[in-house]
Amino acid sequence: MRQNKQWADRGAAGQQAQQHYLVEPRHLAGGGDLRHVTEYLRASGWKDKSKTGGPVVFDSPDKSVRIGYDPHVQPGGWTISGKQTAHQEAWHATFSRQTPVEIVAGLTDALFTTRNAHAPNVWEPLLQQGWETERGQHFTARSPDGDAFVRFHQSSPGQAHWWAGARNEHGRVWEAMFTPTTPMRLVQALSTALADPQPVMRPLGHIAPSQRIRTTSVSVLPSQLSAWQQARITAARAATWARSSFATNRARSSPGARPSSTAGSGRR
């Protein structure tokens, strides 16, 4: 209760600093706070379909993508599914429970970005951070510490299978899998987040049991934690507003467009 009150009373005098840790490499940091993903979705206008005591479920405004998290099934974790559209086949991506939320958010945040004019390159972010590639039964890129990987295998034309994951001295920590129809820009967003050398923050008592991680102890005020979270939420809302305004203005300026119907389609 006291901690919740501290989060609510941002900037209140006499706050007690809490011990957190900056953990690196991020691929061995453990799952983290689900709100890093879910609050961004909520701020971006996604519908929370979760039931009390049940799995987390969010639907995109146009209902074309569903994101869920369920720790109560095996293997459990994140599922991101896209419905078939006029320009995209149905696709599916999964992340096991201990996938760091910052890495999951690499993919989910990319759902809100515009498509780049250049063709996606999954390997480029990894190579820029010193990952090494090897060609065997599968084409694989491995992190400098050897504990994380991204793997590709093409079983036949149009059947490109992608995996990613990490392991420590105790074995496999997490794994991500993508259907061949998953948009490549989303797989690249995953590899970008995975290769990011920046450490991630975890509270005391939530550090993965591994000798292969490096930690730096930091004292953080509850108001600071709340402000950092709010900054991410504010960015999501601003981006959502910008996309909506752009779509509406573009629809209104279309030659021969009827104002009543175009404005509605722009908002959708």
Rank of each mutant, 00 (worst) to 15 (best):
residue 191 S to H: 11
residue 76 G to N: 05
residue 224 Q to K: 10
residue 110 A to Q: 08
residue 174 W to S: 10
residue 83 K to C: 05
residue 197 P to Y: 01
residue 143 S to F: 03
residue 187 V to P: 10
residue 86 A to H: 14
residue 2 R to E: 14
residue 268 R to T: 10
residue 121 N to S: 15
residue 12 A to S: 15
residue 148 A to E: 02
residue 158 G to E: 03
residue 45 G to I: 00
residue 251 A to L: 09
residue 158 G to M: 05
residue 48 D to C: 00
residue 194 L to H: 08
residue 57 V to Y: 11
residue 20 H to S: 13
residue 105 A to P: 04
residue 130 G to V: 00
residue 143 S to V: 02
residue 207 I to D: 03
residue 40 Y to Q: 11
residue 236 A to F: 01
residue 103 I to G: 04
residue 196 D to I: 07
residue 235 A to L: 07
residue 177 M to V: 14
residue 59 D to M: 10
residue 54 G to I: 04
residue 131 W to G: 01
residue 204 L to A: 14
residue 37 V to K: 03
residue 103 I to S: 07
residue 231 A to F: 00
residue 21 Y to G: 02
residue 223 S to I: 02
residue 112 F to H: 15
residue 216 T to V: 05
residue 13 A to K: 13
residue 163 W to F: 01
residue 165 G to C: 12
residue 241 W to S: 09
residue 69 Y to R: 03
residue 189 A to V: 06
residue 124 E to M: 03
residue 266 G to F: 02
residue 217 S to L: 13
residue 162 W to P: 11
residue 8 A to E: 07
residue 96 S to V: 01
residue 18 Q to I: 07
residue 94 T to S: 14
residue 27 H to Y: 06
residue 254 S to C: 09
residue 133 T to L: 11
residue 73 V to C: 05
residue 26 R to M: 02
residue 69 Y to T: 06
residue 116 N to W: 04
residue 179 T to A: 10
residue 37 V to E: 11
residue 92 H to I: 02
residue 153 H to R: 14
residue 44 S to K: 08
residue 232 R to Y: 06
residue 175 E to I: 11
residue 248 T to R: 14
residue 108 T to D: 08
residue 175 E to N: 09
residue 145 D to R: 01
residue 21 Y to D: 04
residue 49 K to I: 06
residue 145 D to A: 05
residue 185 R to M: 06
residue 183 P to D: 06
residue 196 D to Y: 10
residue 30 G to T: 08
residue 222 P to R: 05
residue 8 A to M: 01
residue 153 H to S: 10
residue 63 K to V: 11
residue 6 Q to N: 00
residue 113 T to V: 07
residue 136 G to E: 14
residue 144 P to E: 03
residue 4 N to P: 11
residue 246 F to T: 14
residue 13 A to N: 10
residue 160 A to R: 10
residue 249 N to L: 09
residue 246 F to S: 13
residue 98 Q to S: 10
residue 186 L to R: 13
residue 42 R to N: 02
residue 46 W to M: 06
residue 111 L to A: 12
residue 140 T to V: 15
residue 99 T to H: 10
residue 8 A to S: 07
residue 87 H to W: 12
residue 43 A to D: 05
residue 9 D to W: 03
residue 56 V to N: 07
residue 244 S to D: 13
residue 102 E to T: 14
residue 225 L to S: 00
residue 225 L to M: 05
residue 55 P to F: 01
residue 46 W to F: 04
residue 55 P to L: 11
residue 92 H to D: 14
residue 246 F to V: 12
residue 94 T to M: 13
residue 41 L to V: 00
residue 221 L to M: 15
residue 82 G to A: 08
residue 231 A to C: 09
residue 56 V to S: 07
residue 41 L to M: 12
residue 61 P to W: 12
residue 170 H to F: 12
residue 45 G to C: 03
residue 1 M to N: 09
residue 167 R to I: 12
residue 110 A to L: 04
residue 233 I to L: 06
residue 198 Q to Y: 01
residue 180 P to G: 07
residue 227 A to F: 07
residue 71 P to E: 09
residue 136 G to K: 14
residue 118 H to Y: 02
residue 245 S to A: 13
residue 78 W to M: 12
residue 239 A to F: 01
residue 40 Y to G: 11
